[in-house]
Structure formats: C-alpha cells, structure tokens
Design a protein around this nucleic acid. Structure first.
Lengths: 105, 105
DNA sequence: ATATTGTTTCAACGATCATTGAAACATGAA
DNA sequence: TTCATGTTTCAATGATCGTTGAAACAATAT
C-alpha cells in the first residue's frame, strides 16, 4: 500500500460517526446491515449517514448490496487488513512479535 | 482505548506530511531526529513542520527532547501500539490469526 | 552585548469537512 | 396509478484544517 492510500483510509476512519459505523459493521459481519438500521443504531440522521457511507465506500472500506428497498452495507475486510498491515510494517518498526509496535532493533 | 481516542490518533495520522513524518521517525527509532533535519528530509517548511509536530504530540504519538539548540522528536511506540491493537480488535473482527483482518466466525 | 542558528508562534487566507433541511429518486404495496 | 417507505442528492451554513509569511523566542558563539 502507498502512503496516499493509507492517508485516505485513515482519513475515512478519523471521524466519530464513521469509526463507530465501521465498528458496527465489523461486528455484524459480511451479511451487512441496512442503512436505515445503522442510522437508528448510531443516532445519525439518514442523510448524514448516507454521506458517511459514501465516504467509507469511496476509499473501498465498504461493500453494498441492494435487496428490495434496503441497501445492506458490509466492511471489506481485505482493505482494512491492508491498512493494519501497512501501519504495522511502516509505523511500528516492522516487528512481528506479540507486541506489534516497539522500537527497532 | 476509547473510540474518541482512536479517532484523535487516526486524525493525527490522516495527513500526508504527518504520516510521512511518523514513518520517518519510526525508521529512525527512539533516539529521534531534530526538527530541522525532518523539515529538510520531508521538504516541508519549518513552521509547517512545527505545526504537524504539535498535532502529533498533542495526541501523544511523539516524544521530544531538547539538546542544545536542537529538539529531537521520536515516536511513542506504546501509543501507536495501542492504536493498532484497537483497530485489530474492534475493526478486524478480533481475529488474532496471521491474517489479522477477516470476517467473524 | 550582538549576531547566528534552530525552532516555534501568530494572523490570515483558501480549502475541505460535517451537519441541516428540503427535495428527489427508487422500490414495493394497495 | 397512487401511496408509503428506504435511501440518496443538493444547497447552504459554520467549523476545522493546512499553508504562508513575518515575527518572536531560545540557545550558542563571537
């Protein structure tokens, strides 16, 4: 992963509603949750949520699937995995020990 | 780590100059680098760099130490470790396998 | 004391971001 | 078709962010 891509992903997650949203989606797993239920659970206005869903989708963190009137959103675990790997390798001295982030050497 | 803290850390890293800065500091290790050398290496104006150093310090990602006229900055690996752990646990389905970010169950 | 070097602070500007309310679009039911 | 529901788009607003230039501060040398 390039630095620019990591910055985009970090920026997408660096917002209270969006991080909470992503956490919720991760908990719920690959089947996803409908936008309306997310909005209700997070206490975010539907249009605001739509904005945040778009932000997360724009950087590839979310997948969506339409089912009738509902649109289900689920995390793209591969992308998130890439981000965590990037941070571990580039910002944690590349250590692979139990404690992933420690000084080099 | 609380959600708010994670958001602050993500926000601090979600900027090109700052992520590059942090990467550089991680590479250089606990001894740190002087602000002037960082500015030169990253091609950032000294006052702009000072702003970014403050942003990273504000959230606890950086430690600094004065030596003569120079101020050396180094990463706080413990804090970064906490962030990576938070993301792995809360945003990666809590998996501890080789692939840290995969769907639950 | 003055000068020089390294770093930070301040004010200002344009750009981007998050939220709001209203309207629009899309799907399915009556 | 008409209606209700789920979701998104649009425009406007206030807030925050990143950069710039000039000035200030701090530590050392002359």
């Amino acid at each position: 992963m390039k630095l620019d891509a990591a910055v985009s992903l970090l920026g997408a997650l660096a917002q209270e509603s969006r991080l909470a949203l992503f956490r919720l989606l991760v908990q719920k797993g690959p089947d996803g949750i409908a936008a309306g239920e997310i909005a209700e659970r997070l206490g975010v206005a539907p249009n605001a949520l739509s904005f945040h869903l778009k932000e997360l989708s724009k950087v590839g963190l979310l997948k969506s699937r339409q089912e009738g009137r509902f649109i289900y959103y689920a995390p793209d675990f591969k992308v998130m995995n890439g981000l965590v790997a990037y941070l571990s390798e580039n910002c944690c001295a590349g250590s692979k020990t139990a404690d992933p982030c420690c000084p080099p050497r």
